[in-house]
Simulated scan of single mutants.
Amino acid sequence: MSPRLLPAFAALNAILALTFGTFAVHGVEDPRARDWILTGVMFQLPHVAAVFAILAWRCDRATRAGAWMLAAGSFVFAGILDLLALGAPRGVAALAPVGGTLMMLGWTWLAIVALAGDRLGRLGRPQ
């Protein structure tokens, strides 16, 4: 997988968060829909920043795996809330925990990576 894909996906995540956040503040009258969008933005933007910070910290395979979980999780979580705000059936909300779980797994994995040091970074590389 190209090393450019994760930062590009994180940037797309930021664009979506900013677009929906602006839309919520200026174009959404329903308070519930506005809250859904702003809750998604509140999780999405910090995780975008975290992905870039993580890539600056370390960029080995194990670290990128955790960053991918954060990026995907925030995208799914915020996306579900955005869809609800746009009128998707309420059953779609059942998918939001998938995003939240991915974010939690990502942070857990990154804690393991940090504690393991270079041992996990060498996984998958010939010795």
Score class of each variant (00 low, 15 high):
Phe9Trp: 10
Phe9Cys: 10
Phe9Leu: 15
Ala10Ser: 06
Ala10Arg: 01
Ala11His: 01
Ala11Asn: 03
Ala11Tyr: 01
Leu12Cys: 07
Leu12Met: 06
Leu12Tyr: 00
Leu12Glu: 00
Leu12Ser: 08
Leu12Thr: 05
Asn13Thr: 03
Asn13Pro: 01
Asn13Ile: 00
Asn13Ala: 04
Asn13His: 07
Asn13Cys: 04
Asn13Phe: 00
Ala14Tyr: 00
Ala14His: 00
Ala14Glu: 01
Ile15Met: 10
Ile15His: 01
Ile15Gly: 05
Leu16Lys: 02
Leu16Phe: 08
Leu16Ser: 11
Ala17Glu: 10
Leu18Met: 15
Thr19Pro: 01
Phe20His: 07
Phe20Tyr: 11
Gly21Tyr: 08
Gly21Asn: 11
Thr22Gly: 15
Thr22Ala: 14
Phe23Cys: 08
Phe23Gly: 04
Ala24Thr: 02
Ala24Pro: 05
Ala24Trp: 01
Val25Gln: 11
His26Gln: 14
His26Ser: 12
Gly27Pro: 02
Gly27Ile: 02
Gly27Cys: 05
Gly27Met: 06
Val28Ile: 15
Val28Ser: 04
Val28Cys: 06
Val28Gly: 04
Glu29Pro: 00
Glu29Gln: 13
Glu29Arg: 12
Glu29Phe: 00
Asp30Gly: 07
Asp30Trp: 03
Asp30Val: 08
Asp30Phe: 04
Pro31Val: 08
Arg32Asp: 02
Arg32Ser: 05
Ala33Gly: 12
Ala33Arg: 14
Ala33Ile: 12
Arg34Ile: 05
Arg34Leu: 05
Asp35Val: 06
Asp35Gly: 11
Trp36Asn: 14
Trp36Pro: 06
Ile37Asn: 09
Leu38Arg: 09
Leu38Phe: 05
Thr39Ser: 13
Thr39Met: 09
Gly40Glu: 12
Gly40Tyr: 09
Met42Ile: 06
Phe43His: 15
Phe43Asn: 10
Phe43Arg: 08
Phe43Glu: 06
Gln44Pro: 13
Gln44Glu: 15
Gln44Gly: 14
